[in-house]
Design a protein around this nucleic acid. Sequence first.
DNA 1: CACCGCCATGACAGTCGCTGTCATCGGTAG
DNA 2: CTACCGATGACAGCGACTGTCATGGCGGTG
Lengths: 199, 199
Amino acid sequence: MTVAVIGSLQRMGRWAPDARGRLQQAAMELYTERGYDRTTTADIAERAGLSERTYFRHFADKREVLFDSTGRLEQLVVAGVRDAPADAAPLTAVAAGLDDGAQLLDSFGDDARARAAVVGGHPELAERELAKLSAMARAVGEVLRERGVPDPAAALTAEAGVAVFRVAFEQWAVAPGRPPFPAVLTAALAELRTAVAGG
Amino acid sequence: MTVAVIGSLQRMGRWAPDARGRLQQAAMELYTERGYDRTTTADIAERAGLSERTYFRHFADKREVLFDSTGRLEQLVVAGVRDAPADAAPLTAVAAGLDDGAQLLDSFGDDARARAAVVGGHPELAERELAKLSAMARAVGEVLRERGVPDPAAALTAEAGVAVFRVAFEQWAVAPGRPPFPAVLTAALAELRTAVAGG
DNA sequence: CACCGCCATGACAGTCGCTGTCATCGGTAG
DNA sequence: CTACCGATGACAGCGACTGTCATGGCGGTG
């Protein structure tokens, strides 16, 4: 059926549109159906109606195909921190940015949770996710520096904030009843404040 | 000259001793001399006087050869957290464990800094380091749970503590005059407390 | 209308990371 | 002495990833 869709769309031009999106969808399907390590990049390309070579023109490696959303997440969070009130305390500004990110992930709903299950199920993918979140922390730290926060406070606040985000996300991804992610995040941040103050 | 050493030692048995250590040393040398991506696993094995196949019997992939020390670090930190006074607050217990780890890294001195430079210079290696530290955070969180700390406080305290460790390490790795790492770590932890309290 | 250059894609060959499998042979236990 | 053990080598093979060249609709230009 995927083939049929591609066939009908092909009339619109030389190539079926949205090759990148088709690759992402094919990858999610295959990683879910067979598992990450029993899926080859050639499999993904074939299901998307493309050659393996073209896969690598769109994504740097076998893992990147799952991490487009992470890039948008980082942009959103960074913008949120930058746009926080100038007089907001560093951690408060970070919390504002992360809250924007939490709303985005929440809007993805079950898709975000399905993706989290796949990523969490394979070490290579989990590793890449950590790298993406680390990049987000660096970016947030840089924005804090632009806001006048000196080091190492900027780096520490950014890393702590992203750590809270990660813990809250892992909690939310497996929580029953799909609670709103922003609420989970806010609660986690409050927990951190208590833990650091009390310890 | 490496060959000469191996030759003389070979008389002590069928194989030169400490194949694993030779592989680690060869890898550090080559990654430093030529860079990570211009070194093949066959190169490493050859310099260590072994076959490529044997390399993969000692290390799971091309990256792991640099991360033996991280395993020992985790064991030490976990033990330190476990052995902290039972009435110590969670973050205080974590700080005690991390301080043990800081002393270990400090004792490695310039070797630790050289290794950090190599790891920091290559995305694949940096990614693996993040994964190792994440594993350490999980292990620390587990110990906190054993100490009676409930979730999500356990996970959050562990992640925040390891985040402080990471920031302090990056700072220390490039700091002039080689300050003692435990002191850098303690200062970073104090900074975090201030940042969280103030924000 | 005829031409042309653009560019996403396909095709193909090659390198390297990593694995499965079998053979080798000193050391060690019995 | 023999029989086994265990670290290693040798070799074949798969899959991730790259460099390079060819293809052919599409849009603009004369």
